[in-house]
């Protein structure tokens, strides 16, 4: 089994305790990026990613040369003014960065398409409220079938590579929300299976060393609990055609056949169509 990547807040003392580990370090200010990278180096941390959660539009941030080489997951509130994006584009395209844009932001879906078409990797931030599934569907179609070259849009790119029609496919890894791969560490060094568990104070291990031996079983148990939770209900996500890729992730927003159910069903249909088109080698009658 591959060693898990720990997701933790930036605290120097914590980094010292996690020395030698591979981490996703969460911060909320882009100005901290150079300092965090420096501290990580100091403590022999392998940085899987810096998860930067700003509440600002992309164009209000100053993209910096110092970000070069840093793996970045940058969450912004919206795209902002297009001409500002263009001004920073040359540098942005040279960075190892994926930009997470909320679907609910003004022109959120358009923003993701614009960035992607400019060659910048993006991800849909579905948010906690009820996403606009029609917009998500449009993005899906663009991500998979848009003819113009564009950078990957997550979680669709992940699903294109990972979706297995005979299995459940969990795309939570795109959001560092997959227990077996991305356990979360709090500032005391206690370990939770994910962001939600951490917020609720549900820890499965009191220390990193303990987590190493307990993680696999705890992650498996969580999977089982999910199945028990949904399959014991007389209605809901277990009865939905989108289950095998949604896995109840959007149960709290469920709005039936016209919402998440239709969207996730479309996700599977689209990926299967995409793969089938990719495999079809039709040669034009006149080469």
């Amino acid at each position: 089994m591959t060693a898990p990547v720990l997701v933790c807040p930036f605290q120097e003392e914590l980094l010292a305790r996690l020395s030698g580990r591979t981490l996703v370090i969460t911060i909320d200010d882009v100005r901290d990026i150079p300092r965090v990278l420096e501290k990580a180096r100091l403590h022999s941390i392998r940085v899987h990613c810096l998860d930067v959660r700003t509440r600002l539009p992309l164009t209000s941030l100053t993209v910096s040369e110092e970000w070069r080489g840093a793996p970045l997951a940058l969450h912004v509130s919206e795209l902002g003014r297009f001409r500002e994006v263009v001004r920073q584009l040359a540098l942005l395209k040279q960075l190892n960065i994926r930009i997470y844009l909320p679907l609910s932001a003004p022109a959120g879906s358009a923003g993701i398409r614009i960035l992607s078409s400019l060659g910048v990797s993006t991800a849909v931030d579905f948010g906690d409220a009820k996403p606009d599934w029609d917009q998500a569907g449009d993005l899906l179609a663009y991500a998979l079938f848009g003819l113009r070259p564009h950078a990957p849009i997550e979680p669709f790119q992940f699903l294109i590579s990972q979706y297995d029609q005979h299995q459940e496919t969990d795309f939570g890894a795109v959001y560092f929300d997959e227990p077996a791969k991305y356990p979360h560490v709090n500032s005391d060094g206690r370990i939770a299976l994910g962001r939600r568990e951490m917020a609720k104070g549900l820890f499965f291990a009191e220390s990193i060393d303990e987590a190493d031996s307990l993680l696999s079983e705890a992650a498996e148990r969580k999977k089982h609990e999910r199945r028990e939770k949904f399959f014991l209900m007389n209605d809901g996500c277990a009865y939905c055609q989108g289950w095998r890729v949604c896995l109840g992730t959007f149960a709290h927003t469920r709005n039936g056949a016209n919402g998440c159910a239709r969207f996730f069903s479309e996700v599977m249909d689209s990926i299967e169509r995409f793969r089938s088109l990719r495999e079809r080698k039709t040669e034009l009658w006149q080469p």
């Binding site: 498996e220 199945r227 399959f231």
Partner: peptide, 30 residues
Amino acid sequence: PEPHMRGPGKEIDSVAYNTKFLKSLNILEK
């Protein structure tokens, strides 16, 4: 999955049955 179709007792306790069933699937798959 329908309530009160499979389960123990006069009440046909499907929650008890289905809960145990799902737990057993976990063991089988493991």
